[in-house]
């Protein structure tokens, strides 16, 4: 049987020490038995490694930052689509999701399908409103507070005991042991990601994650739990192992049934020594370690593409426990001419 040909656009080609999910998502798609994919990379910066990985990404275009607004983004995508005829677009950055969700209808008119959460689903899982989320869906979450003003830092002692986590709206999380450190992180984070900055109770335990995909009707199409085995100084997993943990899967199913989540998701949980799970974050997309799920038997990127195309997908029921991923770095060699090409024309 010959494979179906599809053109798929992917962002998040920053396969650095703080990697975006683009390259792992693409590897999943390239592994597909059903599709033969042409991959269009969409890059924000000119040194995102994926741009130069020609066996992974067929062609890359630069696109404007989300902060430039949907209008300029759509104009750029229209141009790209006129050349490439994109079937499905998979955005992989938190910060760009809002822009793409709002553009979903217009993209559809261009013939570009996406499979994203609804704005409501996206908004209610924000870190700044995690306590409300926990209450609404009966999920245990650490105590947290969104602060808008550096002067609020002094009154944190009333509600929190140090250490606390200081988190940005989209990215970044730091541990702080005193007021001064909170202040430092507050300034750094707010200048980068805006307000509010989230202060979260520090829960001691093991960090465990679930990658999952929802069909938008309350079903979990696939879910794989993982424990980080090695964490970089940026807090990113450098190695991890799939777990057999029914409680985590139950938790995932419960959240998906209640919210009817649509698209990829990463649940970040802390498992305490006495076996309690705290939900600390919900990332509204597939994570950078999604290829572990592919390796363990659940090709979630492929399933996501099928959902985007409006096809029925049979939920994955199994995965291999004890599969490991070990990340490694690799030095690509490329000529300045490639950099020139990209910098001058915005395409490579």
């Amino acid at each position: 049987m010959s494979k179906r040909k599809l053109t798929i656009a992917v962002t998040g080609l920053n396969n650095t020490d703080n990697p975006g999910p683009g390259i792992p998502v693409i590897r999943g798609l390239r592994d597909s038995e059903e599709f033969e994919v042409r991959i269009i990379g969409l890059a924000y910066e000119n040194l995102e490694p994926g741009i130069y990985m020609h066996d992974i990404v067929d062609k890359t275009y630069q696109i404007p930052y989300p902060s430039a607004g949907t209008e300029v983004l759509l104009a750029r995508l229209e141009y790209i689509n006129s050349i490439e005829k994109i079937d499905v677009l998979i955005p992989n950055f938190d910060a760009e999701l809002n822009t793409f969700m709002r553009s979903a209808d217009k993209l559809k008119k261009m013939g570009i399908r996406t499979f994203l959460p609804t704005l409501e689903q996206y908004e209610e899982r924000h870190k700044s409103v995690l306590p409300e989320y926990g209450e609404k869906y009966d999920v245990r979450v650490p105590k947290s507070k969104a602060i808008f003003n550096a002067s609020d830092i002094y009154s944190l002692n009333d509600d929190f005991t140090y250490p606390v986590m200081v988190k940005g709206k989209f990215y970044d999380a730091f541990i702080a042991y005193n007021t001064e450190q909170v202040k430092m992180h507050f300034n750094k984070i707010s200048s980068k990601w805006g307000l509010p900055v989230i202060i979260q109770e520090f829960v001691k335990g093991v960090e465990v994650n679930v990658v999952a995909l929802g069909d938008g009707k309350g079903n979990v199409v696939g879910a794989v739990p993982m424990r980080k085995q090695f964490i970089t100084d940026k807090g990113k997993a450098w190695a991890g192992i799939t777990l057999k943990d029914d409680k985590m899967l139950e938790q995932t199913q419960k959240i998906f049934s209640a919210t009817k989540w649509r698209g990829g998701m990463e649940l970040e949980l802390i498992k305490t020594n006495d076996g309690k799970y705290y939900l600390i974050e919900i990332n509204p997309r597939l994570p950078a370690w999604v290829y572990l799920a592919v390796g363990a038997g659940q090709n979630l990127p492929e399933a996501l593409v099928k959902l985007a195309l409006g096809e029925d997908v049979k939920p994955y029921e199994n995965y291999q426990v004890g599969k490991l991923f070990i990340r490694y770095s690799y030095d690509l060699i490329c000529d300045i001419a490639e950099f020139e090409q990209l910098s001058t024309f915005g395409e490579l």
Binding site: E45, N46, P64, A68
Partner: peptide
């Protein structure tokens, strides 16, 4: 100057017309 990590003209256009 093309600065690493900084967007170039394709990244930062804020008005089209």
């Amino acid at each position: 100057k093309l600065v690493t990590g900084m967007p170039n003209k394709f990244g930062m256009k804020t008005v089209n017309e």
